[in-house]
Design a protein around this nucleic acid. Structure first.
Lengths: 212, 212
DNA sequence: TAGATTGTTAATCGATTAACAATC
DNA sequence: TAGATTGTTAATCGATTAACAATC
């Protein structure tokens, strides 16, 4: 039912942060980097960073560190960010717009090829350069465009219906920003972002540290 | 340095999803709920849900299930969502606007008391009912308003400076949506949301399932 | 040489899963 | 009674952490 164990989840979640920092460091002409430096930046222990890098298969030089560009490419390849992924975003509200504006996604191999919304005010306008189309034209378009990823930013009531439509068009992977757990067949994968999950963790930290 | 272990992190991340679903079920007058039903909805094993509920201290009835309203209150109390938290959001771009529009946050005990931005076009307008103020007025206002949480939605280049200012005003907890790891003193907690972390996981699922 | 770092193996810790009696 | 469910203890699995030799 779209729930498939991914090993090393915590490590995978850390990868983009390494990646982003490493790109900044490379731009600053720092050609070698140690786990000590990255760990300090991220508030981790160096051994964690070392073990994470081991997963990507990259090799460092004892006493020296890792070559920045080798690390970047190792992480990119490990995450599959060297492959181009066509994404179709549905729901161009504030959150959808925010995602459309993230320049970094193209660095991560994801390209917005289609954007749909139901609001007549938005249809045929451009958001961050992306043309917003009428969601009623979605099915015929997607059968041609064949996106790899569906990004769900519609209100909760519409989420499941939109996903069902997209699955019918052959979409097999979803990034779900809605409040609901989507019900999908076993050959379809879903990554759900739970914004309230972060708030829950922050709330626990507030408690633990007697901030509130 | 603002990095403090929180136990049961995976369970805590699942709590808001239980919570949200339970509220919907209560509105549908489903007064009793079993872990089987919730697990199926979320794509988990029932034992996981049972263990999670155990953390909150709630008790179910063998053979029957849990009382919906008891579960809701148990989770709310466990997460500290019964305490009111004043939040100050800085950076009213698309992402900031999306957060300001999340009605659910008040259910979770978080109230937006202040919103700041640097863009003259936005200053003195209202976004989802919240007045946007000039970020240059932030310090004097915060010394009075004393928010519990700072929500960072500003561009990366400004994030650290904004946080430093807020810490000087006594803010000790941050929800960081910027691309950077904020450097903060040990008595300050940070919860960082890494949107690209979700994409990394989705990318790995694509790989594993030969979708791309 | 001394200090910093990686690579690797082993130890520990915590989260998930299994098993099953007790209850409705 | 049979079936569904919780509560609880134990087993397993995976992630983090420790330790230390090897390298620069």
């Amino acid at each position: 039912m779209g729930r498939h164990k991914v090993l090393n989840t915590p490590a995978i979640r850390r990868m983009p942060t390494y990646f982003h920092k490493l790109v900044l460091m490379q731009q600053a002409h720092e050609e070698v980097v140690s786990t000590t430096v990255l760990a300090k930046y991220m508030g981790l222990e160096p051994i964690i960073v070392r073990k994470d890098f081991e997963l990507t298969g990259v090799k460092g030089q004892p006493g020296i560190g890792y070559k920045t560009h080798e690390l970047i490419e190792a992480i990119r390849s490990y995450l599959g960010w060297d492959a181009c992924k066509k994404a179709c975003l549905v729901g161009a509200g504030s959150l959808g717009s925010a995602l459309l504006g993230y320049q970094e996604f193209s660095e991560y191999g994801m390209l917005f090829t289609d954007v749909f919304d139901a609001d007549p005010e938005k249809i045929d306008t451009r958001i961050h350069g992306h043309l917003v189309r009428d969601v009623r034209q979605m099915t015929p378009r997607l059968r041609q465009a064949r996106p790899d990823i569906g990004i769900i930013c519609v209100p909760a009531i519409h989420a499941q219906a939109v996903v069902d439509d997209m699955i019918a068009c052959g979409v097999r992977a979803f990034w779900n920003f809605s409040n609901l757990c989507l019900q999908v067949p076993p050959n379809v994968v879903v990554q759900r972002e739970v914004i309230a999950g972060g708030l829950a963790l922050l709330s626990m930290k507030l408690k633990t540290h007697d901030i509130i």
